[in-house]
Design a protein around this nucleic acid. Structure first.
Lengths: 116, 116
DNA sequence: AGCATATATACGGTCAAGCATATATTAATG
DNA sequence: CATTAATATATGCTTGACCGTATATATGCT
């Protein structure tokens, strides 16, 4: 698969999208409401940013019932995956991103395959 | 050294800056006129973009006589260096970036330590 | 000093990207 | 079918980034 490097970095250059991607890098698959809760942002904002990531092929979406799950596109070129991996490794421990993870971990009534 | 991840990716999200960084990743040190020639862009544009890279600590500048040389900041955090390395490996062979390199290689009267 | 070259900055204008609010769509449930 | 929950999109607005042109600064040379 091929992506445009300029668009790829533009995608990472927005804090909301970067936080989503960092969470997706550590959690495999998340639905919009989980991301909304973890980042503590309003739903249309999350949805809009996920749409731009999807339009660029950076994430895949999958509808299951009322939920839409997003994951990193496994067909991203190797260099793009490496960029995401190295970035997660490098900044994942910063307060902002750790808090997102713990907020998600503490979310009540998480939907998803995990629980059923 | 520490950098802001959002600003870092914003820096990579502009084609002029990305091309400069890709060239610097393969050439160690380049002056403004070499970059101007290689990318075939007007000088103030190159200069302005290099200034933003410098202000963010992504590159270092060094004046030598009438020339100002730029290089990747060796004190960038490891993850940022890895991102640049992986990106160069991944997209360096695309036409745009190869052409920049060959344009540079063919530049007449290149200044710099190389020749003296 | 005066000119030429290399580089940096200032200025004014344009356009894209992001935002919040409001509304539409889709699916589950009663 | 009506309602609720989850998600997506539309709208109007604002801000910031980038651009080209013009000008300033700095260095070297004669």
């Amino acid at each position: 698969m091929d992506i445009d490097s300029e668009l790829f970095f533009k995608a990472l250059a927005d804090p909301t999208r970067l936080r989503c991607l960092m969470l997706l890098a550590s959690e495999r698959e998340l639905c919009v409401c989980e991301l909304t809760h973890a980042l503590n942002l309003i739903q249309p904002k999350i949805s809009r940013h996920l749409a731009t990531l999807r339009d660029q092929g950076i994430v895949l979406d999958r509808r299951q019932g009322q939920w839409v799950y997003y994951q990193l596109n496994p067909e991203l070129p190797a260099w793009a995956k490496a960029v995401l991996r190295e970035t997660a490794r490098g900044i994942g421990e910063q307060k902002l991103f750790s808090l997102d993870r713990s907020k998600l971990a503490r979310m009540p009534n998480r939907p998803g395959a995990a629980c059923c």
